Structure formats: C-alpha cells, structure tokens
Simulated scan of single mutants.
Amino acid sequence: MPHSYSRATKAHEDSAHAIRLQKVLAQAGFGSRRKCEQIITEGRVEVDGELVTELGSRVDPGSQKIRVDGSRIHINNRHVTLALNKPKKVLSTMDDPKGRFTLRDIIGDKYERVFHMGRLDYDSEGLILMTDDGELSQHVMHPKYEVAKTYIATLEGKIGGNVCRRLVTQGVHLDDGQITLDHCAIIDQSREHTIVKVVLHSGKNRIVRRLFGAVGFPVKRLVRTQIGPIKLGDVKPGAYRVLSSVEVKSLEKEVGL
C-alpha cells in the first residue's frame, strides 16, 4: 500500500514539534536508523491509523498516534547505556540459533530493547557498549565519527619498537585498505610474547588481529579496554555496569550529538 496522509494528518508535518518518523522509532528503542527505515519501508508503521512507507515523513509524536505492528509506541526519554565486559566464547549478538552464549545471556531480560553498538569477535574480550537509544547507536557506529578504540593485545614473539613506529607512521596495506594505528606502545615482553597497547579508529572486522598478523606477530589474546571516552574499568568478565549521565554526555559529545 502506498504512503498516504489525510489532509488533517499532513498538517502535523508543519508542526514545530514534527521530527522524522525513523528518528521517532529510534528514540522508542527499535534500533539504528537503518533498522527503523527498514521497518517503515516494510509497511509496519501506522500514523493516526494510516500506513506510512515513505522515508522522510515527519510526525509529531506528542499529538499523533504511532503504531508498529499494531502496537502503539512510546518514546523513551530516559535511555539506558551499558558498558559490558564480553568474555571469550560469547557471540556479539542477542540471539544464536545454535544455542551458543550471547550478550543476552549476560544482561538477561531486564533491558528489553537494549542492543549492542559494534562487535568483538568470538575469541576477543572486553568492552562492548549497549543502549536502547537508536540515535546514539547510529552515531557511535557510523564511520563518519570514527570513535577511537583502545586494546591490549598479547602477541606471539618479541617485537621491537620499530614495529610499533611503523604501524603508526606507515601502517599496513590489507585487502580492504591501508590501516594505521593512532598509538602503539609496548607494555611488557618476554622471549615468547609481547603485550602492547594500541589505539585506532577503524572499526573493520578483526582489524587488530589482521594488522599484527600481517607483520608476522599473531595475536594470542585481545582485550578492548576503551571506546571513545568510555573505559571498561573494573567490570568483571561476563558482567556490566550502567553508564552515568556524565559518561553518556561525554560519549554523545564525542559523536556529535
């Protein structure tokens, strides 16, 4: 069914309080902007009883009735954002048909609409941010904002400072482009391994493992300790904490909100 608005409904688009429909859905906890746009184009959204499938439609959530799949939505002005410490062997997803452990097994059912902002691979550990704020999630994950991420990596073998310098100044050309580190520092090393702290903006899949693998030092263990201004802190593996309002504000500032 095509997008349709009655004359009375159309008038709400000119309201001072009118905002884009996909933004309203994101604020209500239905996911990222892309996910909310998909919900609209799939014909699952009604505004004042009329089906809306056109992206860019503006609505006034304070005076109009908006329904998704027949249920009226309510904008959540009190979002929650979590810092979760993902252990190894946990999938960065909310559900797994094979029954493997997921992020849902850690947070339970307390936060129904919380979803993860970014991922860590199955064997990596550390900080994953989760929220029910679709707009915040969209900005954190968008390549435009390139939020810095900090990792502690344990490498096979003993590397010299020249390797770190090369990765910062020259980088490495991988199959999906040239990658450089913002920071690389040796924390500890022995004959068998080296522990380094690295900071980079790229969010490409398995980027730290691929980067060090390309220069001959496979990663034995990888822990993400910080995303933008948010630090993992003393959160134990398999646990999480709720970010303070000050932390959320600092994250929003980092991503242009």
Rank of each mutant, 00 (worst) to 15 (best):
D133V: 15
D95G: 02
K110P: 02
I159C: 01
K110G: 05
I152F: 14
P61F: 12
L51A: 06
H142Q: 04
T154N: 07
I73Y: 03
I128N: 09
V80P: 02
V47A: 09
H116Q: 10
G49T: 05
L91E: 02
M117A: 04
M130G: 11
K88T: 15
E135W: 01
M117S: 00
V45F: 13
R100M: 00
T41W: 01
I106D: 12
R100V: 00
F30H: 11
G134D: 05
S124F: 13
D60I: 13
G126E: 02
T81I: 09
D60V: 13
N77W: 10
I66A: 06
I152T: 15
K89P: 00
G118L: 05
H116G: 07
E54K: 12
G118H: 03
H139M: 13
V114Q: 11
Q27G: 14
R72C: 07
R119S: 01
K158Y: 02
R78K: 13
T41V: 10
V52L: 14
C36R: 05
F101K: 08
K35S: 03
R72M: 08
T81R: 04
H116T: 08
I106H: 12
G126T: 03
D95M: 02
G62P: 03
D105V: 01
L84Y: 09
L136R: 06
L91M: 06
Q64P: 15
L155T: 00
D132V: 15
L155P: 00
E146D: 15
K158S: 07
Y122G: 11
I128Y: 11
I152D: 10
L129Y: 07
V59G: 03
L82Q: 04
R113H: 06
R72W: 01
D48A: 13
R67M: 04
M130Q: 08
K144E: 08
I106R: 14
E125I: 09
R58K: 13
V114W: 08
C36Y: 08
D133M: 14
A83V: 03
N162G: 12
K89E: 04
K144N: 06
G56S: 08
S57P: 00
E146R: 13
D95N: 09
M117P: 01
T154M: 10
F30G: 11
K98E: 15
M117Y: 00
G62C: 05
S32N: 05
S124H: 12
Y122M: 13
P97D: 12
M141L: 07
R33P: 02
R34A: 10
T131R: 09
H74Y: 05
K110E: 14
K35Y: 00
G29F: 08
V47S: 07
I128C: 11
E54M: 07
T53V: 15
